[in-house]
């Protein structure tokens, strides 16, 4: 009787202590999934999701505070990647995939106020005060921040069109193979 109790208590104590030690010494700093998620996000901290930057948004996603369809620049592609990563079922059918876009500045409307220039998270807009601004397509993530701040509505988002360098064959029609 006493023997059995001793064994069980001993076992319980040893295992519990082990777990406690493991929890203390092997603790993982930060949320690892949040870091992985952050790697997927555009990383431009545009703030359209409502968080202050992409790492905050990644934390939010990891905690489940926000749905996967939260990032306009990332679009549907990112949403499905996030759903995969988080292992959640997400109905993305309603989410329209506008595809990648980049900013475009109408020359005759731009007053050269430099507001967009200051806000652009990737420095994709070049120009100077009272001079026409231009967009460096390769650096633009289509985050739409500039569109919002432009006082004259001179900026619009245009879908990125295929070029000879980027075009590839479309996926074939699957025919009768369901």
């Amino acid at each position: 009787m006493i023997e059995a109790m001793a064994v069980l208590f001993g076992l319980g104590g040893a295992l519990g202590g082990g777990l406690g030690l493991a929890a203390y010494y092997l603790r993982v700093e930060g949320n690892p999934i949040a870091e992985e998620i952050e790697g997927l996000l555009p990383g431009t901290n545009c703030g359209q999701c409502g968080y202050l930057g992409c790492s905050a948004a990644a934390e939010g996603l990891a905690k489940g505070e926000i749905g996967v369809a939260m990032c306009p620049p990332g679009g549907k592609t990112l949403a499905s990647q996030l759903a995969d990563k988080l292992g959640v079922e997400a109905d993305l059918s309603g989410m329209k995939d506008k595809g990648p876009v980049t900013a475009f500045i109408f020359e005759d409307l731009c007053t050269g106020c430099t507001k967009c220039l200051k806000r652009c998270p990737t420095d994709a807009i070049v120009g100077a005060s009272r001079q026409m601004h231009g967009v460096v397509d390769d650096a633009c993530t289509g985050c739409e921040v500039c569109e919002e701040v432009c006082p004259t509505g001179a900026i619009t988002m245009r879908p990125v069109t295929d070029t000879l360098m980027t075009w590839h064959w479309p996926k074939p029609d699957t025919g009768l193979a369901a």
Binding site: P42, G43, T44, P100, P121, T122, D123, A124, D138, A139, T141, T166, W167, H168, W169, P170, K171, P172
Partner: peptide
């Protein structure tokens, strides 16, 4: 299609890294 899409994905990833750097 698959080869083209893989290249496009790589390009997109490269761009993402670049914009992050910016």
């Amino acid at each position: 299609y698959a080869k083209g899409k893989l290249t496009a994905q790589q390009r997109a990833k490269h761009k993402q890294e670049e914009t992050k750097r910016l």
